[in-house]
Each structure stands twice: as structure tokens, then as C-alpha cells.
Design a protein around this nucleic acid. Structure first.
Ligand SMILES: [Mn+2]
Ligand SMILES: [Mn+2]
Ligand SMILES: [Zn+2]
Ligand SMILES: [Zn+2]
Lengths: 137, 137
DNA sequence: ATTCAATTTTAGAATAATTCTAATTTTGTA
DNA sequence: TACAAAATTAGAATTATTCTAAAATTGAAT
């Protein structure tokens, strides 16, 4: 079974019809753990699929989000980033190099009493600052 | 000393020259603890100051942010919201009524070992879901 | 008071991420 | 092959924010 076939089956299992575009987009976000923007995805894939449109990238990411395949994060307030890692985790963005690091800690462990009686569907946390490698320069 | 004079002095103490626009904007965010958008601020104040421009609202909020008078939060990731409460705290946004609740817990208490050697300047966290009063309907 | 440079405000144009629209292409089934 | 449903597409529309250059305001120095 080729890599593409494996990814294609993943999508089917999540209830997504695997078109060429959807497989390539899924492949990209799985292989580039960089929390890409729609633009990152488009610019990378348009070389392989010259007819690709940004609308398809957005359509696909919205579909993936709805099916629980990706989630969106908003650290930069003006540009949505996508994350294939669905386990509850957080982020750190370096102000110098821009890298977004994953943080394993699960926010739900905080057990905030003010939320008693509330229904919590999503939780997000992130830090900003300077990463270790940028400090050592 | 009038209320306006008190706010005016607050601004002076933070190194901000208190123009009429700046005082009114500061007054608005202090009296309406609703994490307003630039648009909220503009639409409320343009009734009092008919010549007010959105550019002034943005200019002022950027200045306030730089001086440590407000901070920005991005829960809706398409529209920046402003928060006058500078103590480290988090938020909960209800998907039904849209209300943004403050949460007192301080994220920095989590003490995330992955950040050892990193310089953390900002920390943010928020939840989304249904608030108690929307559930009881 | 008058002058004048620095600061602030302003209107509207520009920018940029995202969504919308309507046409075209692809897919799967009969 | 026929055809309806689903997916993709180009480009226009929308919208939050930033930019620009002109006008207004401020405040010190005369
Ligand atoms: Mn992540
Ligand atoms: Mn708050
Ligand atoms: Zn860095
Ligand atoms: Zn609610």
C-alpha cells in the first residue's frame, strides 16, 4: 500500500471523500508539523497542482476541522494556523524566529472552579517570548 | 476632582498625553468590562465625538498596549478584543450568547518544564463552550 | 498674544485574510 | 453513455486593520 493510499484510507475513515486535493493537503499538514497557514499550504501545493485554488484550501480545512481531522489555532491574531495534532496541547511562539513549539501540558488539568456548570468544548493556551536558540545568539 | 480628571491623571502617570479622545476611550474600556472590539469602541464614542475616526481608536489602543494600559486578546480569531485587566487571567467565550467571561486562574502557575531556558513574555488561555445561563434555557 | 514646530487626529485609500458566487470539472451510478 | 451530485475553480466581495497625507490641536518660546 502506498503512502497516498494510507492517507486516503485515513480520510475515508473520518468520513471525507479523498480527492487528489484533499489527499495532498492532508499529506502536507502531516509531514510538515509547522502549524501552517492557508497560504503556506497553497504556496507549497500549487507547484504540484497548478490549478489549485485558495478556496479549495479553505474549503478543505473547514471540512477537516468539522470532521475532527485538524484544529485551528490563532496566535497571530490576523492569520489562522492549522494543527493536525488533536491531542490537547498548547503552543509557544518565538517573537524572533516565529517558530511555534508544541507544549504537551493539558490545560484541562487546571480544573477551574469558575467553570462549574459550564460546558467546555475547546481549550487553548499559548505563550509568546524568545525561544532558547534565539536567546543563545 | 472629576472622574475625567482622575482618568486623565492615570494616563499621564503611564506616560500618555491625555487628549479628549484618549480619555473617552480609556473611560469606555474601564466602564464596560466587555472586552470590546475596536468597532465597539468606535460605535459607542462616535455619538459623543462625531469627528472620531477608527484610525484614532486603533492608534490609541496600540499606544495603550505599548504603555501597558491594555492588552489584546484573540478568541475570535478575526477580530481583536481589548482588555483593560492586566492581571494574568484567562477567558471563556460562550458560543451561544457570545459573552466573554474572565477566569482568575494564572497560567504561569502551570510551570511547564518544556519552557526551561525560554523567555516567556506573554501567556494566554481561553475556553469555548456554553455558559451556565445558556445551558439553563 | 503670536509664532511655529511637534503631536494628534482625521478621512479615505490601500492592504490582506477569508468568504462568497456562479461556472466548470470530476465523480459515481444507472 | 447519461446524468445528478459533489468538488473545484477564478475571481469578485467582504471586512478588519493599516497606511497616507492633510488638517487640527497643543504647548513652549518669543
Ligand atoms: Mn500544535
Ligand atoms: Mn479579561
Ligand atoms: Zn526563536
Ligand atoms: Zn451564553
Amino acid at each position: 500500500m502506498t503512502n497516498s493510499e494510507i492517507l486516503s484510507n485515513h480520510l475515508k475513515n473520518q468520513g471525507v471523500k479523498p480527492s487528489i486535493q484533499r489527499i495532498k493537503i492532508y499529506e502536507f499538514i502531516r509531514n510538515h508539523a509547522i502549524h501552517p497557514t492557508a497560504d503556506d499550504i497553497y504556496n507549497h501545493l500549487v507547484k504540484e497542482i497548478p490549478t489549485l485554488s485558495v478556496a479549495t484550501v479553505y474549503n478543505t480545512m473547514h471540512l477537516f476541522e468539522q470532521k475532527g481531522i485538524v484544529r485551528t489555532i490563532s496566535i497571530d491574531n490576523h492569520q489562522t494556523r492549522f494543527d493536525w495534532n488533536m491531542t490537547p496541547h498548547g503552543h509557544f511562539q518565538c517573537k524572533v524566529c516565529g517558530t511555534i513549539y508544541d507544549l504537551e501540558a493539558n490545560l484541562n488539568q487546571m480544573n477551574i472552579s469558575e467553570l462549574d456548570g459550564f460546558q467546555v468544548d475547546e481549550s487553548h493556551y499559548y505563550f509568546k517570548g524568545l525561544c532558547k536558540s534565539c536567546i543563545n545568539k
